[in-house]
């Protein structure tokens, strides 16, 4: 359980990016199978029940988005056709993309459940600090990321309430006029945007009141150090890439 939780934010961020890019080099199904296997191990071995539930909650997104993509892709023939019906043709590439998308969504959701916004923001700040060889000491970028992440949550909460309110205001016997309903939906953006603007205003006010300013050295980037677990992850990533390329080279 603890291995994942002890990881540095940077390690989580970099691993996700590397795996994502890495998947684009895959040419064989066994590679996807291997990644899926690793994901299953993480999912059942490292996540709490509640974290798993939070990921599963998004099953619609995980299935619908790749499915839509699959349908669109199947309209075009890109490679050897393995199955076709009417105008739809499924190729190996279509399946690979479908699988890859599902994995990407699962990894992204897992990342967001095991990392809190400030941890992620700090990780980004530290990465920029390292990339600029310590020149960047500021806090602007980190603060912006923290605020954005907090704001996305606020935004979705506001949207949920707006939708609920709209449900209560719509009387079903009158809702046969589907078209006008759809137009009414667009107007739901009004409360969403106006309320969100107000909330953003308040956050900005609070920041000023707490004296936040560009040049303040809020974060001690030097203090953020890697631990053994992080090196293990980096090591296995490198190993994984090397083995993969060796085998691929031979094939």
């Amino acid at each position: 359980m603890n291995f994942l939780a002890k990881l540095d934010g940077r390690t989580k961020l970099i691993s996700i990016v590397v795996i994502t890019l890495f998947m684009f080099t895959f040419k064989n199904y066994w590679q996807y199978l291997l990644i899926t296997g690793i994901f299953i191990l993480i999912f059942f071995g490292q996540l709490h029940l509640n974290q798993r539930k939070q990921i599963i909650k998004h099953w619609k997104l995980i299935l619908i988005l790749p499915s839509l993509n699959l349908i669109v892709n199947s309209l075009f023939i890109n490679g050897k056709v393995i199955w076709s019906w009417w105008r739809l043709h499924i190729t190996h590439l279509d399946l690979a993309i479908f699988w890859r998308l599902i994995l990407l969504l699962l990894f992204a959701l897992t990342f967001s459940t095991i990392t809190n916004p400030s941890e992620m923001a700090l990780a980004i700040g530290k990465l920029i600090n390292s990339l600029t060889l310590g020149y960047y000491q500021g806090s602007g970028i980190v603060l912006v990321v923290i605020i954005m992440a907090a704001f996305i949550r606020e935004f979705s909460e506001t949207w949920q309430t707006v939708i609920q309110a709209a449900k209560l205001r719509t009387i079903p016997s009158k809702s046969f006029k589907r078209w006008s309903d759809l137009i009414a939906r667009i107007w739901l953006l009004q409360p969403l945007i106006l309320i969100s603007l107000k909330k953003a205003d308040r956050v900005a006010d609070a920041l000023i009141a707490h004296g936040y300013h560009q040049d303040a050295k809020l974060f001690d980037y030097r203090k953020q150090k890697y631990h053994l677990n992080d090196w293990i992850i980096y090591g296995s990533l490198v190993l994984f890439i090397i083995i993969n390329n060796l085998i691929l080279g031979k094939l």
Binding site: V203, A206, L207, I208, A209, H210, G211
Partner: peptide, 17 residues
């Protein structure tokens, strides 16, 4: 802001951490 500080009505929007 070191001399004058403010507490807001909206409880949650005043924290970043």
């Amino acid at each position: 802001h070191q001399e004058v500080s403010l507490v807001f009505q909206q409880v949650s929007s005043q924290f970043i951490g």
